[in-house]
Deep mutational scan, measured.
Amino acid sequence: GSVVKEKKEKALIEVRPYVEYYNELKALVSKISSSVNDLEEAIVVLREEEKKASEPFKTDIRILLDFLES
């Protein structure tokens, strides 16, 4: 629970300088966080969101995924 939350919060802070739609990304992460149990599940849902998103938000999600998977 809290470790996953920390990882996601740290990821958002780390990617902030590189993303165009930070507030939207943060809102998406919050929405996903409330419906998943762990980081792996969150990553799966983020990948689905990435497929549906259009640029440049798609790239923002990709940047976040790269950080979460590192």
Results as ranks from 00 to 15, higher is better:
1 G>F: 01
1 G>A: 12
1 G>Y: 01
1 G>R: 01
1 G>D: 13
1 G>I: 13
2 S>H: 11
2 S>C: 15
2 S>V: 10
2 S>Y: 02
3 V>C: 15
3 V>M: 08
3 V>I: 09
3 V>H: 13
4 V>A: 10
4 V>K: 04
4 V>L: 14
4 V>R: 03
5 K>E: 15
5 K>C: 15
6 E>M: 03
6 E>V: 05
6 E>P: 06
6 E>S: 09
6 E>H: 06
7 K>I: 15
7 K>S: 10
7 K>F: 15
7 K>L: 15
7 K>M: 15
7 K>P: 09
7 K>W: 15
8 K>E: 15
8 K>Y: 15
8 K>G: 15
8 K>D: 13
8 K>F: 15
9 E>L: 10
9 E>F: 13
9 E>I: 07
9 E>W: 15
9 E>S: 04
9 E>D: 14
10 K>Q: 15
10 K>L: 14
10 K>C: 15
10 K>V: 14
10 K>M: 13
10 K>T: 12
11 A>I: 12
11 A>R: 02
11 A>H: 04
11 A>E: 05
11 A>S: 04
12 L>D: 04
12 L>R: 01
12 L>M: 05
12 L>H: 02
12 L>K: 01
12 L>I: 04
12 L>V: 02
13 I>D: 13
13 I>G: 04
13 I>S: 12
13 I>T: 12
13 I>L: 13
13 I>R: 12
14 E>G: 07
14 E>S: 14
14 E>H: 14
15 V>D: 00
15 V>C: 07
15 V>A: 07
15 V>M: 03
15 V>H: 01
16 R>L: 06
16 R>T: 02
16 R>K: 12
16 R>S: 04
16 R>A: 10
16 R>V: 06
16 R>Q: 10
16 R>D: 00
16 R>I: 06
16 R>W: 05
16 R>M: 09
17 P>A: 06
17 P>S: 04
18 Y>G: 03
18 Y>H: 06
18 Y>T: 04
18 Y>N: 03
18 Y>D: 02
19 V>M: 02
19 V>K: 01
19 V>G: 02
19 V>S: 01
20 E>A: 14
20 E>Q: 15
20 E>W: 12
20 E>L: 14
20 E>N: 13
20 E>F: 14
20 E>Y: 15
21 Y>R: 07
21 Y>G: 05
21 Y>C: 15
21 Y>P: 01
21 Y>Q: 09
22 Y>A: 02
22 Y>W: 10
22 Y>M: 04
22 Y>I: 03
22 Y>G: 02
22 Y>D: 01
22 Y>T: 03
22 Y>E: 00
24 E>P: 01
24 E>Y: 02
25 L>A: 01
25 L>F: 01
26 K>P: 00
26 K>W: 05
26 K>N: 08
26 K>M: 06
26 K>Q: 11
26 K>C: 07
27 A>I: 10
27 A>T: 09
27 A>S: 08
27 A>D: 14
28 L>M: 04
28 L>Y: 01
28 L>N: 00
28 L>R: 00
28 L>S: 00
28 L>D: 00
28 L>V: 04
28 L>A: 02
28 L>C: 02
28 L>I: 04
29 V>M: 11
29 V>S: 02
29 V>E: 01
31 K>P: 01
31 K>N: 07
31 K>G: 07
31 K>D: 11
32 I>C: 15
32 I>P: 02
32 I>E: 02
33 S>K: 03
34 S>Y: 06
35 S>M: 14
35 S>R: 11
35 S>W: 07
36 V>R: 03
36 V>N: 05
36 V>S: 07
36 V>H: 06
36 V>I: 07
36 V>M: 04
36 V>Q: 03
36 V>F: 07
37 N>F: 07
37 N>R: 10
37 N>G: 12
37 N>S: 11
37 N>W: 05
38 D>C: 07
38 D>R: 06
38 D>K: 08
38 D>E: 08
38 D>N: 11
38 D>S: 13
39 L>K: 03
39 L>I: 09
39 L>E: 14
39 L>Y: 08
39 L>W: 14
39 L>A: 06
39 L>H: 07
39 L>F: 13
39 L>S: 07
39 L>V: 09
40 E>V: 11
41 E>K: 04
41 E>H: 06
41 E>T: 08
41 E>C: 06
41 E>L: 05
42 A>L: 15
42 A>P: 01
42 A>T: 14
42 A>Q: 10
42 A>M: 15
42 A>S: 09
42 A>V: 15
42 A>H: 04
43 I>S: 04
43 I>V: 10
43 I>T: 05
43 I>F: 11
43 I>K: 04
44 V>I: 11
44 V>C: 12
44 V>S: 07
44 V>W: 11
44 V>F: 10
44 V>R: 10
44 V>A: 08
45 V>Y: 13
45 V>F: 09
45 V>H: 12
45 V>A: 14
45 V>G: 11
46 L>Y: 03
46 L>S: 00
46 L>G: 01
46 L>C: 03
47 R>Q: 08
47 R>G: 06
47 R>P: 00
47 R>V: 08
48 E>M: 14
48 E>T: 09
48 E>D: 08
48 E>N: 12
48 E>R: 09
48 E>L: 13
49 E>I: 04
49 E>Q: 04
49 E>R: 03
49 E>A: 04
49 E>L: 03
49 E>F: 07
50 E>I: 08
50 E>R: 10
50 E>C: 14
51 K>L: 11
51 K>I: 11
51 K>Y: 11
51 K>D: 13
51 K>R: 13
52 K>Y: 07
52 K>N: 12
52 K>S: 08
52 K>W: 08
52 K>L: 11
52 K>G: 06
52 K>A: 10
53 A>M: 05
53 A>K: 04
53 A>Q: 08
53 A>E: 10
53 A>P: 00
54 S>V: 10
54 S>D: 11
54 S>R: 08
54 S>M: 10
54 S>G: 07
55 E>L: 13
55 E>V: 08
55 E>C: 11
56 P>R: 08
56 P>K: 11
56 P>V: 04
56 P>F: 04
57 F>T: 02
57 F>Y: 08
57 F>E: 01
57 F>Q: 02
57 F>G: 02
58 K>H: 03
58 K>R: 12
58 K>F: 02
59 T>R: 15
59 T>K: 14
59 T>C: 12
59 T>M: 09
59 T>E: 04
59 T>I: 07
60 D>E: 01
60 D>P: 03
60 D>I: 05
60 D>M: 03
60 D>Y: 04
60 D>G: 04
60 D>F: 05
60 D>W: 03
61 I>S: 00
61 I>Q: 00
61 I>P: 00
61 I>R: 00
62 R>V: 06
62 R>L: 09
62 R>C: 11
62 R>A: 10
62 R>Y: 05
63 I>A: 03
63 I>S: 03
63 I>K: 05
63 I>R: 03
64 L>Q: 00
64 L>D: 00
64 L>V: 02
64 L>F: 15
64 L>Y: 15
64 L>N: 00
65 L>E: 00
65 L>Q: 01
65 L>F: 02
65 L>T: 14
66 D>C: 14
66 D>W: 12
66 D>T: 13
66 D>I: 13
66 D>V: 12
67 F>T: 06
67 F>S: 04
67 F>R: 07
67 F>P: 00
68 L>D: 00
68 L>H: 00
68 L>T: 01
69 E>G: 12
69 E>M: 10
69 E>H: 11
69 E>V: 08
69 E>D: 10
70 S>W: 10
70 S>I: 09
70 S>N: 13
